[in-house]
Design a protein around this nucleic acid. Structure first.
Lengths: 205, 205
DNA sequence: CCGCTAACTTACTGCCTGGTAAGTTGTAGG
DNA sequence: CCTACAACTTACCAGGCAGTAAGTTAGCGG
């Protein structure tokens, strides 16, 4: 605070500010976070925020975008098209949950706080739509549920993504084992509740 | 409206105000809705809001509570314990989706807008938890998944509810056929993606 | 027809917060 | 060492919005 007013190059201060913003948004919500609060959290004075990121209407999407990019990156890491569908699915799910676990603030601010914000709803919806489309494709190619139309596949993807997000929420706020969670999801998704297969017979093929 | 300043009994005005609040919250978000805006939407002057519902910190939970109660009511209508599990599930799912379809504003404000609001997060979480517990019970009693622990059942319920909410979102903003949606969810939930007919791996064991 | 209460309004106040102007100091480069 | 720019601050303003005080009418009980 008083002592440590080191002068840092713009690039790193910008990141610090975004970090602070994400953190505060995650715990207080977006609209109830004042610029002063962000400034305080970033250990910087308010005009710096405006200088580097412009008014609130610009700075916050910026934070969202950065987090969103991180997120997409993390997701695609686990995506290896050479795997069999089921393994692919498990990997993606696991990687997704792992990201959430490791970036709880990002998750909360991106998918929970921002969703309720009219200003961001569109942004988030777009990001989610991409993910859904990705999953829907996977389904189209990987499963042969008979006579399913494109629209039906998409709806399945919607449901799956929703399930994933719900589990992710649990992970972001509790202490659930990642492996267990991923296995349950795969098991449920593949064989359903009536599938009769035992839950711990999951495939680390 | 200059013309229509009819004097109405307190009870109905109170409901009008809540209706207006829900509507505005749903489209503008909670924190970005000013008391004046609610007042305007309810065709009433601001002091009436305070007189009947107290300050914003009271009036908004009140709206949420009312919507939540409606919601629970609707859900339990379709719940007939004499049905077989699968039919029970389908009925609950269908009734749930039908409610969302018929009360889009309620849905949005309850489950999307309020979730991001620190002040309500707890309230919503509690409501959702009840639903999850209900589903988890259903699973415990109804499915053949062997040796699943309570915690695992609960996680499944979390995933299912998440899926339901995601589909509900789609319904609340688009024109998806209710029956189709319900069928797909039941199908997916019961037999999984691989269970429909055939898979790239193997059908039921 | 008269008053009394409940329904309602206009018209303010004070605070909070977004946003900025103007001034200060560290430090890189000559 | 000095100059010039970039990093930073304090201090302020203006608008918006929550919340209220005080006053106005409508209609119901007598």
């Amino acid at each position: 605070m008083p002592g440590g007013t080191k002068r840092l190059p713009r690039a790193v201060r910008e990141q610090q500010m975004l970090d602070a913003a994400v953190k505060v948004f995650a715990e207080k919500g977006f609209r109830e976070t004042s610029m002063d609060a962000i400034a305080a959290a970033a250990d910087i004075s308010k005009p710096m925020l405006y200088l580097y990121h412009g008014p609130r209407t610009n700075s916050s999407p910026r934070a969202s975008n950065r987090e969103g990019a991180r997120f997409i990156d993390a997701m695609t890491i686990g995506f290896d098209p050479r795997l069999r569908q089921r393994d692919q699915a498990r990997t993606v799910i696991f990687e997704f949950l792992r990201f959430v676990d490791a970036n709880r603030d990002s998750w909360r601010v991106l998918y929970r706080v921002a969703t309720g914000q009219a200003a961001f709803a569109g942004l988030i919806a777009a990001s989610r739509a991409r993910l859904i489309e990705m999953i829907a494709d996977l389904l189209r190619r990987g499963t042969t549920v008979e006579r399913a139309t494109d629209r039906e596949f998409e709806l399945m993807a919607v449901a799956l993504v929703g399930a994933g997000e719900a589990v992710a929420d649990r992970i972001s706020e509790g202490d659930i084992d990642l492996d267990t969670a991923a296995d349950i999801m795969v098991q449920m998704g593949w064989h359903g509740l009536a599938g009769g297969k035992r839950i711990d017979e999951h495939a680390f093929d």
